[in-house]
Amino acid sequence: MKTVIKTTDLTKIYNSSVAPVKAVDKVNLEFGEGEFTAIVGPSGSGKTTFLNLIGGLDKPTEGHVMIDDTDISNMKESKLFDFRLRNIGFVFQSYNLIPVLTAKENVSFIMLLQKESKAKMEKRAVEMLEQVGLSEKVDVRPSKLSGGQQQRVAVARALASKPKFVLADEPTANLDTESAFNLLDIMSRLNKEENITLIFSTHDQRVINRARRVITLVDGAVSKDETFDR
């Protein structure tokens, strides 16, 4: 299995007024193509910080993040923007859709930033919304969608640009059980059928139960790295 992400001694220290806080502590991990991984751990264990570091949203204090053969740890900001745009999909806990755009426009938006043609964008956006079961909500704005539907639009948006991997930060935290299962079904299917690499930070047992690899962080360090045959 091809390695998509590799971290080497990845460390992030925040300087607080009291004492420096080690949010991520010398983490050495590899993520292969098509993995479905859950990063778990109690609050403050460093899950989100780790995701931000491998997603290029934050810079490590020490160590490196390699995406394929590219070290993004010290990449210039302008290059990093472009790198994220072309390689990483994001799903956020609060959906973070653009409220003034329709579902299709939200999904198309990332392709627009990639300067795709209009026809291609629209086709891909509609396809992605069909894949997440929202073919009838293509022209609906987020305010008219339920939380679960909004998160599915966010998943479609994350996948529309065909990223190398998708980072999802507690994607089910704001969803009811039915919506959460629905979302997980879709993500599992996409992971298997399209071989999309998915990495979640979560403490939602529903997600953990679906993941084929579960990495537990405690105080910023890896305490367990388990693999399951699911």
Binding site: S78, F81, F90, S94, L113
Partner: peptide, 16 residues
């Protein structure tokens, strides 16, 4: 702020 943060996160350049 959250929405703008998302735009920056997915790769929309600061100039845009």
């Amino acid at each position: 702020a959250r929405e703008l943060g998302m735009l920056l996160a997915i790769g929309m350049k600061r100039a845009k």
